[in-house]
Amino acid sequence: MKLELEVNGAAAHVEASPWKRLLDVLREDLRLTGTKEGCGEGECGACTVMLDGEAVNSCLVAVGQCHGRKVVTVEGLAAQRAGEAEVLHAVQRALVTCGGAQCGICTPGIAVCAVHVVDSGALHGADDATARAKVRELLAGNICRCTGYQLIVDAVIAAARELEGARS
């Protein structure tokens, strides 16, 4: 079927079976290979993207369901102004500076989910212990085999603090 969706702020036209996974349409039809497949079963979160502003597993979304909807992938997290170099989201920068990525397979999914968590204000005003517990709960659907999570949690908290500081 002919599909029209908004991907990372731009219109995307795709001809695909409605049963095809959003994950495969992103990687194969749109060549957005930042989104990774870990398990294909909804368990690992490597394929996380935003669908109409919610973090979802793109391996569990039939692309027919995305017609007319907005999708944001890891490629769409950075701010991009015409003629300027792109600026990474605070979460992405913090993952780099805190060492929250090793092999990198889980990283796109973690970045998307963490941006969703931070931008939704879920950590706003929380003290450190509460914020750490929240990050662990909200990122529980993103599995990482390398880092042991500690540095990922550090990064998400650092990004949330930076954005809070910028706001106030």
Binding site: G42, G45, T48, E54, A55, V56, N57, L60, V61, C113, H116, V117, L138, L139, A140, G141, N142
Partner: peptide, 9 residues
């Protein structure tokens, strides 16, 4: 139920 991504869908 599941995690954030599963609860959203």
């Amino acid at each position: 139920i599941g995690a954030l991504q599963i609860q959203a869908r």
